[in-house]
Each structure stands twice: as structure tokens, then as C-alpha cells.
Amino acid sequence: MRITVSGLPGSGTTSLSRYLAERHGFSMISAGEVFRQLAKEHNMELARFGNLARQDPSYDMMIDARQKEIAQERDDIIVEGRLSGWMVDNADLRIWLYAPIGCRIKRIAFRDQVADEETAKGLTLEREQCEADRYRSYYDIDIADLSIYHIILNSEHWGVEGLGAIIDMSIAQLKQSRHNP
């Protein structure tokens, strides 16, 4: 089974992906973690590194191609990233996590240890616009088009356990339908 988990920064995609990987014994690949690691290796904040990636598409394309390649080669995998729903054509389940900007900013400020929420908001909105521009430019993808997703959940209303329970049920139904067509 191949599952993609996508959403805007701070929506909880990494937390849900880790939960699902652990709960179901799936492997996991995270584009966001790879991108954050590259930013760190370049001693840059995410927004600045995003601007570098905008100037040099090879960073994004390398991450996207690697995710796609791994997802094609493996079964029982969680592929987490903003574009994973678009990149993994053979996904059995595509999930989009939504959370309002205020909720996401609080999470991002805490996670990334940003001094204050106003700074976190500015950096996040700049990053989101930069990413949206790059995705449209590279792949003609409108990140706001959620029509490809099987499940869209508001992560403000449920913690990772609640979100996980909803997806656990979905996975069980998919497995059952495979055995009883």
C-alpha cells in the first residue's frame, strides 16, 4: 500500500506520517525533512533556502524525483510532502491535511523555535507563495487544487491520534476491499 500525506506547513503531515508508519509498519519518506536538512546544511532559514531553490530548480526536482522513485520501488510506504499526492501516481490513498493559518503559525513558531508568531507568519506566507510559484512553474501544479485527494482532514480539530484513527479505518477498508473485491 502506498499512502501520500500532504498539506501546508504546520498542518501536521509529518506527525501523522510518523504515526501511520509506526502503527502499520510502513517505511516513510519526508520531502519536508529533506528540504529542512538541505537548508540547515546551507546555513539558511527555510524562506531563504526556498528562494535559492526558486533560482535553482535542481533542489526541488531532486527531492521530488527521489520521492517518486522510492514510492515506485516500494510497497507499504508513507510518502509525506507538499507534492507527494501529485508525484506518486500509484498511491492507494492520498491525504490532505488542512489547518487554519493561525493554528499552523502557532505550531511552526513552536517547532522551528521562531521568536514570535508574527515573524513565523511572515516567513510561512513567504515560503508558501515561493513554493506555489515553483510548483506551478516546474510542473504546472496548482497546490490549492485538492481534487486529487481521497481524504481531506482539518488537523485543528483532531490531534495525531484522532487523525490516525480516521486513517487507520480507511486503511483497514482499503485492505478489506483488496481481499474481498
Rank of each mutant, 00 (worst) to 15 (best):
S15V: 02
M62K: 07
S155G: 08
E131Y: 04
L174Q: 11
S11T: 11
K68V: 05
Y98H: 15
S137G: 00
I151D: 10
A91M: 10
H24N: 11
G10V: 04
D75R: 14
L123D: 07
R104F: 05
L153V: 12
S147P: 06
S84R: 01
R18K: 13
A91C: 08
G85E: 06
M87C: 10
P57Y: 09
M44A: 06
E161Q: 15
K175I: 12
E45M: 11
D116G: 10
P181Y: 09
S11I: 04
I141T: 06
D133Y: 05
Q72Y: 02
M1C: 07
E131K: 05
Y19T: 09
R107W: 07
E117M: 11
K68S: 12
F49Q: 03
W158R: 12
A47D: 11
Q176V: 01
Q37R: 15
Y19G: 02
S84G: 02
K121W: 06
R36P: 02
M169L: 13
G85D: 08
R2N: 11
L52T: 09
M28F: 03
V34A: 14
Y138C: 07
D140R: 09
L46G: 07
S58A: 13
A39P: 03
I70R: 00
K175T: 10
D64L: 05
W96H: 07
E45V: 11
Q129S: 09
M62V: 01
F110E: 15
T14P: 06
P9D: 03
A109K: 13
E126V: 06
G159H: 04
E117P: 00
Y98S: 10
E45C: 09
M1T: 03
L8I: 04
R74L: 15
Y19M: 03
E45T: 14
G50K: 03
T124D: 05
E131M: 04
V79L: 02
L83E: 08
V34D: 10
H179Y: 03
A109N: 07
D112M: 08
A132T: 14
G85C: 08
E128D: 15
E41L: 13
S6V: 09
D56P: 07
P100C: 09
L174G: 10
R23E: 13
G81S: 06
I78W: 07
A165P: 05
K68Y: 00
S17L: 00
S30Q: 02
A31W: 00
Y135W: 11
I167A: 01
G85K: 02
D64F: 03
S177D: 08
I101N: 01
D56N: 14
E22T: 09
M61A: 06
A115L: 09
A165V: 01
I108G: 02
F26E: 08
